[in-house]
């Protein structure tokens, strides 16, 4: 008899009894929980935080200032769908304006524009700036892109959400660092 059994001489009939059937019932209930979760996702009308809107459009355009304000390599934050929907507007080193939702597709940290890539500082995930594809680190899905529109007066507007790209290239092909190395060689 172990020391703790002598110290606590309680003898419960059900103590230590956990049958296979009880374990199987627990597993079945957990399985039902997964089914309920999928049913919830099916019935939920509002998209999840990082998911695109079902229609792919946004009712109201958001003004982002003048397109000429951003120089290559610079970025600016803005909100799009609501106050919690934080996005980042940037001008790539090649001069193109791009905007992405700031939520990392790994675990939801805020990405930032660093050098030639978008960086998630939480787990060192990196995205290329042209299409938002992940090129390094834990993320496997691209960032949500925001559609931009430059109007005749030079003002820049966020007018909707870009469709998610389906053909994610291999990381070696998408990584700009590898491209630079190829150019040098």
């Amino acid at each position: 008899m172990s020391w703790w059994r002598r110290a606590f001489p309680l003898d419960l009939a059900e103590e230590g009894h956990f049958s296979r059937r009880e374990f199987a019932r627990f597993l079945a209930v957990v399985s039902a929980g997964f089914t309920a979760g999928i049913g919830y996702l099916w019935l939920r009308k509002k998209p999840l935080e990082t998911a695109p809107e079902p229609t792919g459009t946004h009712e109201l355009a958001v003004a982002l200032g003048r397109a000429s304000d951003l120089q290559p390599g610079q970025s600016r934050l803005f909100t799009f769908r609501d106050a919690q929907d934080r996005c980042i507007l940037l001008r790539t080193p090649t001069g193109e304006l791009k905007a992405y939702r700031q939520t990392c597709t790994h675990l939801g940290c805020a990405v930032r524009f660093r050098g030639e890539r978008l960086e998630c500082p939480c787990h060192e995930g990196f995205f290329e700036v042209d299409r938002g594809f992940p090129v390094q680190g834990p993320p496997t899905r691209p960032l949500s892109g925001i559609a931009l529109e430059t109007r005749a007066d030079g003002s820049l507007w966020a007018v909707g959400e870009l469709p998610k790209p389906t053909n994610v290239p291999t990381r070696a092909a998408a990584c700009p660092r590898d491209t630079r190395m190829e150019v040098r060689s």
Binding site: I38, W42, L48, T50, A51, P52, P54, T105, R141, K164
Partner: peptide
Amino acid sequence: VLDGQRALL
């Protein structure tokens, strides 16, 4: 669902 594909639900 996070990728916006709900058809398989």
